[in-house]
Structures are given as C-alpha cells and as structure tokens.
Design a protein around this nucleic acid. Sequence first.
DNA 1: TCCTCCATGTACCATATGGTACGTGTACCA
DNA 2: TGGTACACGTACCATATGGTACATGGAGGA
Lengths: 194, 194
Amino acid sequence: MVRSAVASSQARDRLLDAAVEHALEQGIVDLSLREIAATIGTSHRMLIYHFGSREGLLVAVVREVERRERERLGAAPVSVADARRRWDRLADPSLRAQERLFFEIYAHALLGRPGTEGFLDEAVDGWISPVRALLIDAGIDEEDAEGLARLGLAVTRGLLLDLLATGDTAGTTRAFDLFTELFDQPSAHDIRHE
Amino acid sequence: MVRSAVASSQARDRLLDAAVEHALEQGIVDLSLREIAATIGTSHRMLIYHFGSREGLLVAVVREVERRERERLGAAPVSVADARRRWDRLADPSLRAQERLFFEIYAHALLGRPGTEGFLDEAVDGWISPVRALLIDAGIDEEDAEGLARLGLAVTRGLLLDLLATGDTAGTTRAFDLFTELFDQPSAHDIRHE
DNA sequence: TCCTCCATGTACCATATGGTACGTGTACCA
DNA sequence: TGGTACACGTACCATATGGTACATGGAGGA
C-alpha cells in the first residue's frame, strides 16, 4: 500500500500532539518547522514527511484545535443554568491557553490565511444553529431564537476575551451572572415565550 | 540637532500611514519590511531608517491603531440609545478592516509578543472604567456598574467577532437590539437603580 | 536469506529576511 | 560658496526558512 504523505500513523499522532502543545504555548502564526522540531526533539524533515508541508501541519493543528473545542464544550446549553455551568467550565484557568489559541486562529482566519478554510463557519454557525434549534423547540419565536443564540455566543466570547486579557475570573463571572439575571427576570417572558 | 531614529517627520508620517494601510489589508503579524516597502514604493532601508527596526515599526502601527480606535469611538455611551447608535457606527462595513486588525493585535498581545505592551490594558480597562464611572454617577451600585460595563463591552466585542466572520449586519444588529431590550425592560429597574 | 516499505537523519539548496555600510543628492545656513 | 544634516538608494551580509536528495536502519513477508 502506498501511504500518502499525510496519512495517519502513530508517529504522526505523536508529532501532532506535540505541535499542538507547542502552539498552545507559543502561538501558531509564526510557527516554524525547525523550532517546533527542536522543542519536540526531532528534525523539521520529519514534520514535512508526516504533514506534507508547513501548511499541512498548520491545517492539522487547526483541525485538532477545532476538534478539542467541540469536545470540550459538549452539547448546547438547554437552560440558563446550563449556560452558567458551561461558563464556569470555560473560565477555568486550565483552558486559557486553548482559548487564546482559538482567538489567534480566529484572527488568522479573518484574514483569509491558508489552512483556516471553514474555521469561521464552524466557529460561529456551528454554535448558533444548535442553540437556535433548542430555543425554537422551547417555543420561542424564530427570529428571537436566532438573536438570543447570537447574543449568548457573543456574551461568552466577549467575556472570554476580557478574561484572557485581565485574568479577572471573579469580575467576568459576575458580568455573566448579570446577563443571566437580565434574561431570567419575569418580564423577559415576552421574549422567551411571546 | 541630532534626530533620533524614531523622531517624527513628515516622511515618517507618510510611511506610517501607508504601513497602517497595508496592515489593514494584509494583517500585521507576518509584516515584512520588504513587502511593505514594495507596496508603498520605497525601500525597506527607509522603514528601518525612520522606525529604527522592524519592531519599532510594529509598535508605531499598533499605537496608531489604538489611537484611531479611541478616536473612532469617542466618548463612552451614557444611555441605551447611545450604545445603540455606537453599535450602528461599529457595524458599518467601512470599519471592518480596522476591527479585524484590532482583533489580530489583541490575539498578538495575548501571546505577549513584543510591541504590544499596554495594549490589553487599554483595550479592556480603557473602556470599562469610563462606562463604570458613568453608571455609578447615574446611581447604580458599584459592583453592578462594573459588571454592566463589562457585559456591554463583551456583547459589543462578541457581536463584532460574529459580524466579522459572517458579515451578517442585520442578524448581529438584531441580537444587539435584543440585548438593549433585555436591559431596558421595567423589571431590570432593580439592577439599574437598586 | 533477501527484498520491500516505512521512518528517520544529514546535508544541502534557493530564497527571503532584518540589518548595515557606504555613497549621493539636496536644502539650508554661515 | 562651502559645509552640514537629512532623506534616500544600492549593495551587501549573516541567518533562518521551507523544501529536497540521498543514505540508512529496521521490521515483516516471500
């Protein structure tokens, strides 16, 4: 069997893990094959061998980060309490590096850089769609459902940006709680069930 | 008079403008002196002459972007209607490139890259502080004021990220309106004036 | 035992990069 | 008129980069 240069293998998985680890700490945009290889303990030749090219490695890293992002967040929140639990998970310091990398790739993708095709669609619509569907199932007007899904995503991402910059877990969590209170108050009823 | 390598001059201003223009279109992280010089119509030698080094140019570009950001947004919003007007201004397509660059620098700064010192402080606290002060003046409890300021910033930045990725001005604006409605409803009174 | 395929290393190449040396024209001032 | 300071170009340098050529070792099958 003729293996393509980008087929999977145990060695490739090991290298990919190490490359993602490196990206979590050092970022991804100025990723250099030689530098990664040196910190991993192999030669840049091996990275090209397993991933085809620098861009191939970049694509693999981006996909892996996407995969971890989905895995980390699990199902869409079905209630305000759910959303709050999810925020607590997101605000955990152990995830900072991953979120930082996520935003770096996001900015990267906004500039249309190669290797990020499809990332933005997945990053936005991949979240809005399931939440919107859940809200519609719960009897909320379609347009409001879309808006609320968008708003929830925006609050989460916006507060994460704040958290990454300031490290102020308590402050950002208070802001998130304020949002859930606004949403939960009785007279928001006409939006939730009009 | 001995001019330092980074002193200002008309020629330097012209180059800086052109460099910012380039960054708006091509991004800033993989900025190369030669490439910029070529598109500007000068030599990379001149960039080093006027900015001292590549990093000097990067710092100058970041500062200029910060300056334009402040100038663009003007005073803090003092009412929900104000906030809404500001969103309309932000959502204008002519600002997309500037906002994209802002988020690219933000990600850059999160990784502690040189040339971005102070950017994050200004980007977060520079916004939260004045809004918080306004809210406190308006009689809102201190802790809520901080939270609301944070929340407003998060909604704005989060929806901008959405807008940049999707280009969906109508959808993101609807989400922003939903937020103002949540905030404006009568029973939010206990947060606004408790 | 020999042959084939995969993983890996070493050495190399062309290119692009930031930065420097040096020369030159020009405007202004004594 | 001579000199000085600035703005700029050309040519160069050392280095780092992505990618390739080629050799090697080892495992498994015929």
